[in-house]
């Protein structure tokens, strides 16, 4: 599977309500040790209820400058959240369905 197949895909909850689209996919290099790096494991999805494409990730950092541009982009992505991969119930051919018990987490990047 290629990553573009996940990006911008619509996401719904178990009741079929729309939650937005996949803005980005978070990986963590903490899987099984590999030849040079450990495996990059898919940790979860960042979902935006508003805009389908990310731009510069201002919604995930506390970067505030240049002020005008930073605040515009943050405003465009307000309400973005992160869900763990364990909270994904299934993929259909066009959508991603979250589990009944999914939890919205902050999309902020750890320092």
């Amino acid at each position: 599977m290629i990553l573009s197949d996940l990006l911008t895909r619509p996401v719904i909850d178990a009741h079929g309500h729309s939650l937005g689209r996949v803005l980005d996919v978070r990986f963590v290099i903490d899987g099984a040790p590999g030849q040079l790096l450990a495996e990059a494991r898919l940790a979860g999805l960042i979902i935006s209820p508003r805009a389908a494409t990310s731009f510069l990730g201002y919604e995930r950092t506390d970067e505030k400058s240049p002020w005008l541009i930073a605040s515009y982009l943050r405003w465009r992505h307000r309400g973005s959240f992160f869900v763990r991969w364990e909270d994904v119930d299934r993929l259909t051919s066009t959508r991603i369905v979250l589990a009944r018990s999914y939890r919205k987490r902050s999309a902020a990047l750890p320092d």
């Binding site: 990553l3 990006l7 803005l23 980005d24 996919v25 978070r26 990986f27 963590v28 290099i29 903490d30 450990a38 990059a40 940790a43 979860g44 960042i46 990310s54 510069l56 990730g57 201002y58 919604e59 995930r60 950092t61 506390d62 943050r74 307000r78 309400g79 959240f81 992160f82 763990r84 939890r103 919205k104 987490r105 902050s106 999309a107 902020a108 990047l109 750890p110």
Partner: peptide, 30 residues
């Protein structure tokens, strides 16, 4: 410190990890 403190109130805090974190669009693509 998070991106947008006001609307983060309803959100659970971000996970933290032992390994390097890579957001595909932000840190890998292009």
């Amino acid at each position: 410190m998070t991106a947008n403190d006001e609307d983060d109130i309803s959100l659970a805090p971000p996970d933290s990890y032992a390994g390097q974190v890579l957001d595909a669009q932000l840190h890998l693509l292009d």
